[in-house]
């Protein structure tokens, strides 16, 4: 019960942070941090896949409603939640526990960073590709994906390293 309240609090906090502050950041008109994906990144490794995807869908759709982009964030976030367990298994050292919350302590900085970049990159690629659906400028799209991925990763690393 307490755990659920805790999660809902985190979800609301991250959504508000995203729509009120982060969505207004466009460094060089290209890079925007999408920090709300931090929520699913930090779910425990034994959370059922279905539950992860439902969280992702709920949070993604809420962001969409604020942003007038119905479906875009939801689709990208569900995709990330869907592949996350596979990526987690792929990047976790063999001798870790069965159930753990992904972090640099449990996984080691290098594996955690690899897991983080892979998840962020998949999410941003899906998000920005769907968003610019009708545009053919691949160079521009690629640049936005790479720069936004770098920025989001940087933000999450900062939070992760300061939270101890």
């Amino acid at each position: 019960m307490n755990d659920w309240l805790n999660k809902i609090g985190w979800a609301i906090g991250l959504v508000l942070l995203q729509v009120l502050i982060l969505n207004n950041i466009h460094i060089g008109e290209f890079a925007t941090p999408f920090l709300y994906i931090y929520f699913v990144l930090k779910l425990s490794s034994d959370t059922p896949r279905n539950q992860q995807m439902l969280w992702a869908f709920g949070i993604g759709l809420t962001i969409d409603i604020f942003d007038n982009t119905v479906g875009i964030n939801a689709a990208a976030f569900v995709l990330m939640a869907f592949v996350r367990p596979t990526l987690l298994r792929l990047f976790t050292p063999r001798d870790t526990y069965d159930s753990f919350i992904p972090g640099k302590k449990v996984m080691g900085s290098a594996s955690f960073l690899r897991y983080l970049v892979a998840c962020v990159f998949i999410h941003h690629t899906a998000l920005l590709t769907i968003e610019s659906f009708s545009f053919i400028s691949f160079g521009m799209l690629g640049l936005r994906i790479v720069l936004s991925t770098a920025l989001t990763t940087l933000c999450i690393v900062a939070i992760e390293w300061f939270r101890k």
């Binding site: 439902l54 759709l61 119905v70 479906g71 875009i72 939801a74 689709a75 569900v78 769907i130």
Partner: peptide
């Protein structure tokens, strides 16, 4: 569930 949620997102979109 994955396919259903993605389908729902795109229908909304």
């Amino acid at each position: 569930l994955f396919l259903a949620l993605e389908a729902l997102s795109f229908i909304l979109l």
